[in-house]
Design a protein around this nucleic acid. Structure first.
Length: 421
RNA sequence: GUGGGAGUAGCUCAGCCGGAAGAGCACCGGGUUGUGGCCCCGGAGGCCGCGGGUUCGAGUCCCGUCUCUCACCCCA
């Protein structure tokens, strides 16, 4: 039987891996432009961190975590998301002591024990950023626009940005009570899941897609009616900033996120018209998380982007190859070829040659497949005459040149104005 | 965790009523002992996902299981 990657995991092969690279390049550039620096975190944390951070009643914590015990009996969990880890590191290393805000980005694998589906894996990858220390909506704007720019730069246009406020510790409890008593009126119409949610986390009833539940929700109180003046003002300013930044968005009063730590702003970038896995990136504000994990009271906001989901929608990268493929006969020509290969690399020009000891014909075939624009051919004639044979793989034109002439051509081709080699 | 569809060569797939495992593409070699693509010829490559059952005989029928996939749940 052939070996198989574990359920919900996958290999990223070329050329898909090149689309990943492009995403990473674009993201790193954007982070750098905005002054975000990278934090590399462990992929496992103490289970307690996620229970306290994400919330015991969330689906992630209650049924999707890869949890195990180490040999000392401690309970560890493969991270299902990155924010809790960032906040832990922020507290552990006193990162806020050298001045605020602290702006970090991360990238790496996350783990959730779900049933796999296209665009959803048990090991998946997220890249994201956290802006710690600011309660101002300008920070929300920076995070949203950072995410927006990355998606835009990748050529993903026409995405829907949906925004909502889920309130804060002042106004959310009142809203939850209001919603709960509203739902209690039609409780017998709700599905089992929603009846459970009603108690622990009533906002998440909005996530339900069942017709009977949606029907029951008609006329439910809206969070917007309950927002306290501060939250209301925060949302109003964010809306103004987004408009000023030229970022289109839609207020979505029913947008709720699956993590308990969000306060005020939540947002999601969605692919319109698609039902499943339509969220490419999402995030929000979490003003109480740092304090609840034992740090100083520190407001924060962040986003996270699903790498697989974005890569799924990227056009294949067609990168034009440059450089040479060296074709040579056995014996002394082979040694000359090795010398040339090394010199080419030393000068920074891509170069490949055969490693299978194959015939000249087969080497030419390999040169063709390697899609290098130039083949350099070395045999006895070339050695004796002190020249190289250059074959243009596109036109099949062939000529004799000196080594210096080869480097001159490659040099010319590597200039910004370009050249075909 | 629930329900539908599908697993045959590296890839895409055909395989009838149960009766000797196939095609296209890709790969390797030759046609040309110093030349790629096109063409021609040849070759290699398969526990027919895995396990069990029915049968003289199973890729084919039945059961189980694993994986992929779609829809839920939920999420990036």
């Amino acid at each position: 039987m052939k070996p198989h990657a574990p359920r919900g995991t996958r290999d990223v092969l070329p050329p898909e891996s090149e689309a990943w690279q492009r995403l990473m390049d674009v993201a790193r550039e954007a982070f750098w432009l905005h002054g975000y620096r990278e934090i590399v975190l462990p992929v496992m944390e103490h289970t307690e961190l996620f229970i306290r951070g994400i919330g015991e009643n969330t689906d992630i914590v209650s049924k999707e975590m890869f949890t195990f015990r180490d040999k000392g009996g401690r309970s560890l969990t493969l991270r299902p998301e990155a924010t809790a880890g960032v906040v832990r590191a922020f507290i552990e290393h006193g990162l806020g002591e050298k001045g605020l805000p602290v702006k970090l980005y991360y990238c790496g694998p996350m783990f959730r024990h779900e049933r796999p589906q296209a665009g959803r894996y048990r090991q998946f990858h997220q890249l994201g950023a956290e802006h710690l220390g600011s309660a101002h909506p300008l920070a929300d704007l920076e995070i949203i626009s950072l995410c927006f720019r990355i998606l835009e730069k990748l050529g993903l246009r026409g995405l829907d940005l949906v925004v909502n406020s889920v309130g804060d510790r002042v106004c959310r409890p009142a809203y939850q009570d209001g919603l709960r008593s509203f739902l209690a009126g039609g409780a017998d119409q709700l599905c089992d899941d929603c009846r459970r949610r009603m108690e622990a986390s009533p906002l998440r009833v909005f996530d339900c897609k069942r017709e009977e539940c949606r029907e029951t929700l008609r006329g439910a109180p809206r969070i917007s009616e309950y927002l306290c003046p501060d939250c209301r003002e925060h949302l109003r300013l964010l809306r103004d900033y987004l408009k000023a930044a030229g970022i289109d968005f839609r207020l979505e009063p029913e947008l709720v996120r699956g993590l308990d730590y969000y306060t005020r702003t939540v947002f999601e970038f969605q692919v319109p018209g698609e039902g499943a896995q339509n969220a490419l990136a999402a995030g929000g504000r979490y003003d109480e998380l740092v304090a609840s994990l034992g740090g100083k009271d520190t407001p924060a906001v962040g986003f996270s982007l699903g790498v697989e989901r974005v890569v799924l929608r990227l056009d294949p990268v067609k990168k034009e190859k440059k450089g040479i493929y060296i074709v040579s006969k056995d014996g002394k020509p082979k040694l000359r070829a090795l010398e040339l290969l090394r010199e080419s690399h030393h000068r920074g020009f891509p170069a490949e040659m055969d490693t299978l000891g194959r015939s000249l014909k087969a080497q030419m075939k390999a040169a063709d497949r390697a899609s290098r624009p130039l083949a350099v051919i070395i045999g006895e004639e070339e050695l004796e005459g002190g020249f190289l044979t250059l074959r243009d793989m596109c036109s099949s034109a062939q000529e004799r040149v000196t080594e210096e002439e080869l480097w001159r051509r490659l040099e010319k081709a590597s200039r910004p104005d370009g050249g075909k080699y």
